[in-house]
C-alpha cells in the first residue's frame, strides 16, 4: 500500500493534509462566488474599468510588463548587481579564463594548502 506520510528523519509530512486544506479553500471560494451578484452581465459598460471618469488605456498599455517587476528589489541591492551582472561578459576568452582560474584555485586548495 502506498503511504503518503513521509518521514524525513526530523519530522514527518503528509501531503494529504495540504490537499485537504486546498480543497477546503476551493469550496470556500466557490461558496463566495455562488453568493455573488446574479445580475452581472458580461457585456456593456460595467465590464470596463472605472478610472475616475478618464478613458481606460488600450489593452496593451494596461499590462504591467516584465521589466517593471522587481525594480525595487534590483535597486535595493544595486551594489551587488553592478558587480555580478557585468561579470557575464559574453566573451569566450573570459569564460575560458574563469574555467582555468577556478581550476587553479581548486588545485591550490586541494593540493597545496590542504
Amino acid at each position: 500500500m502506498l503511504s503518503t506520510t513521509f518521514h524525513t528523519g526530523a519530522g514527518y509530512w503528509n501531503p494529504l493534509v495540504w490537499l485537504g486544506v486546498f480543497l477546503l479553500l476551493l469550496v470556500l471560494a466557490y461558496l463566495f462566488w455562488f453568493r455573488g451578484e446574479s445580475g452581472y452581465r458580461r457585456e456593456g459598460e460595467q465590464t470596463k474599468p472605472f478610472l475616475s471618469g478618464n478613458r481606460a488605456p488600450a489593452r496593451g498599455e494596461m499590462h504591467l510588463r516584465a521589466s517593471h517587476l522587481y525594480w525595487g528589489f534590483t535597486e535595493a541591492i544595486r551594489g551587488y548587481y553592478e558587480r555580478v551582472v557585468p561579470a557575464h561578459t559574453g566573451v569566450l576568452n573570459d569564460y575560458l579564463l574563469w574555467f582555468l582560474g577556478v581550476m587553479s584555485f581548486i588545485l591550490v586548495i586541494m593540493v597545496v594548502i590542504r
Partner: peptide, 8 residues
C-alpha cells in the same frame, strides 16, 4: 570581443 550578443 564583438561576438557577444548573448551576455548578462
Amino acid at each position: 570581443d564583438r561576438i557577444r550578443e548573448l551576455r548578462e
